[in-house]
């Protein structure tokens, strides 16, 4: 199986130590080695955004990182996105707006949406659409996703 390397990584708050083949990318490591199958793989060339996860708080394409590159870092997947604060509100809003159909893009879409709320946070549909422009959804037509993110921001602002 070629060269392997031991890595220590905090995944969803759990300390993980694994020998990993150096060529294994982060998405395959999460899915196949750790069983975190909520991270979806749609293209393996960094375009579709389905595999988006957070590494040290920043969104990344997990198909465009090697597992060995997260040594000593923190990884958060859909399974580990805390069900509080904006994430919980986003889940409720996605449900209410029907902002998902097949759900394959949803974990990556949520990761990007959380990032938008944290970094930009304006209920500006154009900016939201721009921020989501790296997350491909073939089912919804995007509008309900934009609606859901706007809902969360507006409710947050009113509080």
């Amino acid at each position: 199986m070629g060269q392997t390397k031991k890595i220590k990584v905090m995944v969803n708050g759990e300390r993980i130590e694994r020998d990993v083949a150096v060529r294994t990318n982060l998405s395959d490591f999460l899915r196949n080695d750790l069983g975190l199958t909520g991270t979806h793989v749609g293209c393996e060339h960094g375009v579709c955004g389905a595999c988006t996860v957070r590494v040290n708080g920043q969104t990344v394409r997990s198909c465009l990182m090697l597992a060995v590159q997260v040594d000593d870092l923190e990884v958060t997947t859909i399974e580990g996105l805390a069900d509080t604060g904006p994430v919980s509100a986003l889940r409720d809003a996605f449900l209410k707006r029907n902002a998902l159909q097949c759900g394959y893009c949803t974990p990556g879409m949520l990761a990007s949406a959380v990032e938008y709320i944290e970094k930009i946070g304006e209920p500006d549909r154009k900016k939201i659409r721009e921020h989501l422009s790296g997350n491909y959804c073939r089912c919804t037509g995007y509008q309900s996703i934009v609606d859901a993110i706007c809902d969360v921001i507006q409710v947050g602002t009113e509080k």
């Binding site: 920043q58 969104t59 394409r61 465009l64 990761a111 990007s112 721009e130 422009s133 790296g134």
Partner: peptide, 11 residues
């Protein structure tokens, strides 16, 4: 802002 997308710009 024209260079790819946020997750790509982060790396």
């Amino acid at each position: 802002p024209h260079i790819a997308h946020s997750a790509i710009r982060n790396r």
